[in-house]
Design a protein around this nucleic acid. Structure first.
Lengths: 255, 255
DNA sequence: ACAAAAGTGTTTTAACTACACCCATGG
DNA sequence: CCATGGGTGTAGTTAAAACACTTTTGT
């Protein structure tokens, strides 16, 4: 069944090539308005096909690393950042994903911490784009980005994703800001706060954020999965792919 | 990036092998109680490793078929049935998934119509198992089955999956039966009916199911996706992976 | 003391639960 | 006419939405 009777040469002729790509999300404040929005880094193609066009970071899967490790590696290579969250998105294997050899891409998506992302600056071959206006990408990468965007919003409503954009401690207003930025709609702060406080995966600390211009807000800490000591959490079917939806926060609203 | 500079011989040495597997679900009534439960077909391994053990149906990905087509093919080969529903589950690519060559499996899960499944009988190398007691499987297939089971239950609560177990027309009691069987809990029939009737994806016909021993129940029709004429629907990021959760029916309850 | 963000309370609205009840048919 | 599954009504409970309100800080 699995061990094909074809020898290696035969297989490599008919078996598609396998690559890993990653959609990396970070939150960036808009210069003018100060509102945050989702951004993602893309890399410029340095060979055919689609030479010169922007594409998702990725590369072929090496024989000695797991799929997640490969995704994490591409993230490291393009942004030099550690992902706070990493989850498999989908395996794309259509026949007409581009010219040239048949290619199957296993795509991951990641969240990196806000602020940190600013330390991974644009360069000749890497550039950050607003997630909702990336322009025309190589291959089917526009479809992939759209799907990843759908997924991150879905997780935001039903999972506990938001904290991975933030540092080890944060104010409820910061979480509120993340939700509004990712979902692209305004959320009642009063109700939002209540829902967060009834969520089981964060807890109040006795510290307050000083230095603001107004009343100092209380700091909270994320107590969700992620082994103690680890500064990130990975989702996969090994554990539960997402926290079994214990309604962390969701609202319609007052757009 | 994608077009590796390594030549074919080099790549085949370090790139893992790629296979497609499918978890095929069908509902079967228990002989004694008449209650329905999830069953799935497994195939016996006819070569090493894990010779003789039960495993998910699948095989290497041919060069000229899409991932979904490959999954559909394995389904055809093992059950000779047409899937009513087919969705990608996950790509498994850990390093220690079994002895021998490194293997990446892209796994799909499928639903086949109730009753039809009875026409795909057990044979020497194919056998149906209750999904909750498949015994010890080859490779990491127990993990995969568990995850697929979690997924089908999740889709049952948040998607419109149930109808794919049924024929073109069905009674609400039959849908109720599907929900109870898959979720493994009892659901209040009165409330269940109300939620179904407020769902947008089914509509009442003016036909009634005759031949029963009691009051003839009204027949309903599924009006969800699936192009007219098609007898199945496939979920993938091309469309929306699952119907954007418009609460078709969900309940806790009276176990 | 005032502006502005942090944080709380209260009313309304909608959804879900539990369960009593009526309806239609075959035997 | 009665047993049984099909189907409806309704009160109680819970959660979410809307929005008025109080608190605490910096300036």
């Amino acid at each position: 069944m699995y061990a094909s009777s074809a020898n290696v040469t035969e297989r490599s002729r008919q078996s598609p090539m396998l690559a890993i790509s990653t959609v990396i999300f970070a939150l960036r404040p808009d210069e003018a308005s100060g509102r945050h929005a989702l951004w993602l880094p893309l890399v410029r193609r340095i060979r055919q096909p689609h030479l010169g066009q922007w594409a998702l970071p990725g590369g072929p899967l090496a024989g000695s690393e797991s799929l997640q490790d490969a995704a994490g590696r591409t993230l490291q290579e393009t942004t030099a950042l550690t992902p706070r969250y990493l989850e498999q998105l989908y395996a794309f294997g259509g026949l007409n994903r581009g010219p040239g050899q048949r290619l199957v891409s296993i795509v991951y998506w990641a969240l990196v911490q806000r602020g940190e992302a600013a330390q991974a600056p644009d360069s000749e071959n890497v550039r950050w784009f607003r997630a909702d206006s990336v322009g025309e990408l190589a291959f089917d990468h526009n479809d992939i980005v759209d799907y990843a965007l759908w997924r991150v919003r879905n997780r935001m409503e039903y999972g506990s994703i938001a904290y991975h954009f933030l540092g080890p401690s944060f104010t409820l207003a910061q979480v509120h800001e993340v939700y509004e930025a990712v979902l692209g709609k305004s959320i009642d702060p009063a109700n939002f706060r209540r829902q967060l406080r009834s969520a089981t995966d964060i807890e109040a600390t006795d510290a307050f954020l000083q230095g603001g211009r107004h009343r100092p807000p209380r700091l909270y800490r994320y107590t969700g999965q992620a082994a103690p000591g680890a500064h990130f959490s990975f989702a996969g079917p090994a554990g539960v792919p997402y926290p079994a939806r214990q309604n962390p926060a969701r609202q319609r609203s007052t757009t």
